[in-house]
Design a protein around this nucleic acid. Structure first.
Lengths: 207, 207, 207, 207
DNA sequence: TATGAATGAGAATTCATTCAT
DNA sequence: TATGAATGAATTCTCATTCAT
């Protein structure tokens, strides 16, 4: 997250403000005046940073995807070749991401209607890459025989859905830390994929 | 599903139109003009039926919850006492519900910010009842030893999340029917809960 | 006030409701729905009694003027020829009228802008008659030497203004009865007109 | 009375336009479109200056009260201690005020129903101060024996009412100047208060 | 008489955005 | 860069009134 330093100061404050407002009221429910106010700047200044509301949304979504996919790739790199460890890496990265960004303010799930056509296809392309990361790991695990789920597609969807849902209830003041939650979800995900006990034990010990 | 007969004609057409528009563009992204237009009536007529946009949203959400919880209760009644069959009943009802109502137009997930305080607490109360239905079944299964998940709370959340996610990709023209999808998700849910093989076989045969 | 019996039941309830609403919120601030509701009838019924909002206003104003001018004429008749007694009659009638009708709901002072041209001239004509009643009495008093004000026109306006103002503060639960107030205002009015002490004593004793 | 210099240009034009429209049609009878049009600006610009219709009304009323009470205080200061001269000061200030501001557009008599609770109490508080100014003078005059009215409270109301009524008929093109009218009303007011002839003569000569 | 549905114009207000400086 | 004024379209909602039955 070494993004700071490069960005022209106001940029990040603006993105942060927009992220929060969008998260609280949704894209359409938020006025750029509210964003400017929360960012502590005038409307005119806001327009100097971004040409419009849409671009603000897109910047947020893109930034979130950068952060998420970057984390995923880094985690995969570190995980090596073992499908179980790779799966654990993805789950952990997803949980951390959902915990870090408020509820729906991140990938702005459900705000796709606010995207214009160009950005929508860009977004879908990147989202597909994300899906692919999971699919690849699941397929690798099936190929090597450590995963045995009869419904790989649905199992992959289930894993992603349950990880994403963490963003809806996670509270930093809760009893469990993010990483403790991540551990549990790794276990649950392996269960969903019907991971062989031996491989599972190895992975859970490792992380 | 022609619920007509009770409702004064335009009411249902209006709800249907609003459901579709809200699903496509979100609550704030939808203008009541668009709703009226889709329902084929003038703005004034819309206001003749409903006192405002909020009430329209609330009516939709309430109706959806009525349908969902009604289906759940009926399914539970029919399932008898066996926790496995009860779990299967809830999963099936949820999948069917998510398939029947377009994406986010049903329980209007993520539009809570548009609820006023009164309705929000009403909504949360009902939602808690839904959560409870799942919790009760999970607990009963754990008590009787057929479920063995070490994380009942998270497993329950995972099951609900994966069922809800069906609404995001389900396409009636797809290869699998709703009930086939439901069968798969019952299997996945039982896997998540670490259901004993014997009980599982029994349940999957039964449905 | 034997007006009842003739009017078709709903009529008077309607006028009463309209009078109250207009008094509370002004003509433009009142919707005919509010009037219908206060009168306990449906919109359609209201429109059966009166063709529109304007006519309702005009009916109220006319009825109020009927009541007021009727009372004035009766009082003048009873007063005989003495200017002092005639003045006392007018003042008393005016005070009683202002006390009987809520604040501005009576002659709807200040709602002339809501009158159409035809009614406006009709209203002005009647109002002029009212003014004339006072003027005549003042002039008679001057002619006979009992009134000695050097500014008859302004004195007349002052008397009328102070009587009308009673409607703005009169409270039936107050310490003084309407007639006690009227007595005081007769005294004040005679003072304004610089009535000769002898004539004054006679008049104040008489009433 | 060119108050300009402080206010940002459009503000005063707006207030003037609103004052005139409100005076002609009443608060509820006036649309902000009409105000904007009379002020020669667009709706949006109007909203740039004032956040809403209510605030416009309140600004007008407050400004009018500032002007009136300011004039009263200045006049009282100049009048010295003599109750007769003080009374004359108040009457003159009131007449001038009523003549300067169109009919009911000033203290917006009779538009209290359009005030919100907060402003209503603020308004009533200031209005009470105005009442008090008159009461104090009347009481002082009674104490010193120059006023002899047996009904001080009603006399005070009468004086205020007759002065206020000037705004309903005053026409700058009339035969009498504002100050000539004021002189007459001072005389009438002193008559109402039953001022001692000696003191009266002195006061009428002085002004 | 009576009714509830329907109508279309107009209400106040907010929006994202641009412009002149 | 930065600013506050300006813009005009769109927003939700209310209005007085009429219509079909």
């Amino acid at each position: 997250m070494k993004r700071t330093g490069a960005a022209p100061a106001g940029h990040t404050a603006l993105l942060q403000a927009a992220r929060e407002e969008f998260a609280e009221r949704g894209y359409d429910g938020t006025s750029i005046r509210q964003i400017a106010q929360r960012a502590g700047m005038s409307l005119s200044v806001l327009y100097h940073y971004y040409p419009g509301k849409t671009e603000l949304l897109q910047a947020i979504v893109d930034e979130a995807m950068d952060a998420y996919f970057g984390a995923c790739e880094a985690a995969l790199d570190e995980a090596g070749e073992d499908p179980v460890r790779r799966l654990a890496a993805l789950v952990t990265a997803t949980i951390r991401f959902r915990a870090a960004y408020p509820s729906k303010g991140s990938l702005i799930q459900g705000e796709e209607h606010a995207f214009n056509d160009e950005f929508l296809s860009h977004y879908r392309k990147r989202a597909a890459v994300g899906t692919r990361m999971f699919s690849d790991v699941v397929e690798a695990g099936l190929a090597s025989g450590v995963f045995r789920t009869p419904y790989p597609e649905d199992a992959r969807r289930a894993v992603i859905a349950m990880c994403n849902a963490v963003g809806e209830w996670y509270d930093p003041r809760g009893a469990l830390s993010v990483d403790e939650i991540a551990q549990r979800y790794v276990a649950l995900a392996l269960t969903v994929l019907e991971c062989r006990p031996a491989a599972r034990t190895r992975a859970l010990r490792a992380s």
